[in-house]
Design a protein around this nucleic acid. Structure first.
Length: 300
DNA sequence: AACCAGGTTATAA
DNA sequence: TTATAACCTGGT
């Protein structure tokens, strides 16, 4: 991995070369995150822009193994984006491990099709709230709700001059609301934001996080993913699927194995004999395996 | 006009 | 213990 700091007009850009297994389009379009949109860039690069960890950022990749991070300096890269994209993870090794557990199955084709997908490490708190919102809902509406919530009570993010060309249609950019902000908004306020029957679920999560009954540090440090998921399921409105998503996408629990309607179809189609289908057959990176299968079934 | 969307809960058998 | 309806909302 080789780093360079560049300038694009007034915008600071980090160029990362020598990364294997990173496809920005697949990574940001595979449904794991809700605050990034495809942006029309003046150059030929495909670019995804959005907010994560309180920062507005845009990612682009060439057809080769080079990644561009707009509105980032070296320090931001080391502190945030390196970990967000999990660039310190060896996906070659991970893929090998997955194949060893599932060679000869549909996994081989799914891995080839989804090559370059990376599981992001999103903010754990944001992931908990976001995946509660995701239940029995579709992606455009999930994004809309989270966007509206952020507009309503998230902290405004200042953009450097010239960053507007990396923006989507939104006129202003806000961070995901803090726990205090959602607490203040309350269940009624959450309902006003079109969260529907999920309002009371979100508010229960907010209360339990505020009281310490649900503890993000404990979740992150749980000895096993099963224990992490059990703790998450104490919240009303968090079941196995939502808990697994929060664990996988927000806490780097790579053996968490969310089974939604699409994965249910994968199970019925390719693994009908596996009545549990809890991911154990795919090894310690079952969550990443899940994302390959999901992407293969959903977006092929 | 029903039905569905990256589920979960409450209620009933 | 396992099955089925109801749930907010917005789009087809």
């Amino acid at each position: 991995m080789d780093l360079k700091q560049l300038k694009d007009g007034n915008i600071s850009v980090i160029e990362v070369s020598g990364i294997d297994y990173l496809d920005v389009s697949k990574t940001f379009d595979c449904g794991q995150c809700f605050r990034f949109d495809k942006v029309q860039n003046s150059s030929h690069k495909v670019e995804y822009a959005g907010v994560a960890h309180g920062r507005y950022v845009a990612f682009a990749s060439d057809s080769d193994d080079t990644l561009y991070i707009y509105n980032s300096d070296m320090r931001d890269f080391e502190d945030v984006w390196l970990h967000f994209l999990c660039l310190d993870l060896d996906y070659g090794q991970i893929n090998k491990d997955i194949l060893e557990h599932s060679g000869g199955s549909v996994m081989e084709a799914a891995m080839e099709y989804g090559r370059g997908i990376r599981i992001l490490k999103q903010d754990s708190y944001e992931a908990v709230i976001s995946f509660i919102i995701s239940q029995n809902n579709n992606i455009p509406r999930i994004k809309k709700i989270i966007e509206a919530l952020s507009e309503r009570c998230g902290e405004k993010i200042m953009l450097p001059d010239g960053m507007d060309k990396h923006m989507t249609s939104e006129s202003s950019i806000s961070a995901f609301p803090t726990l205090a902000a959602l607490d203040e908004l309350g269940e009624a306020g959450l309902f006003e934001m079109k969260t529907g029957f999920r309002a009371k679920y979100i508010y229960d999560a907010v209360c339990k996080l505020g009281s310490g009954e649900l503890d993000l540090v404990k979740l992150q440090n749980a000895p096993t993913t099963a224990e992490c998921i059990d703790m998450l399921c104490k919240v009303k409105g968090i079941g196995l699927k939502v808990a697994s998503c929060a664990a996988l996408f927000g806490m780097a629990k790579y053996d968490a194995f969310p089974v939604d309607v699409w994965m249910r179809r994968v199970a019925d189609k390719y693994f009908p004999e596996d009545t549990d289908f809890n991911g154990s057959r795919f090894g310690k990176y079952a969550g990443i395996a899940q994302q390959y299968l999901f992407y293969y079934e959903r977006y092929q």
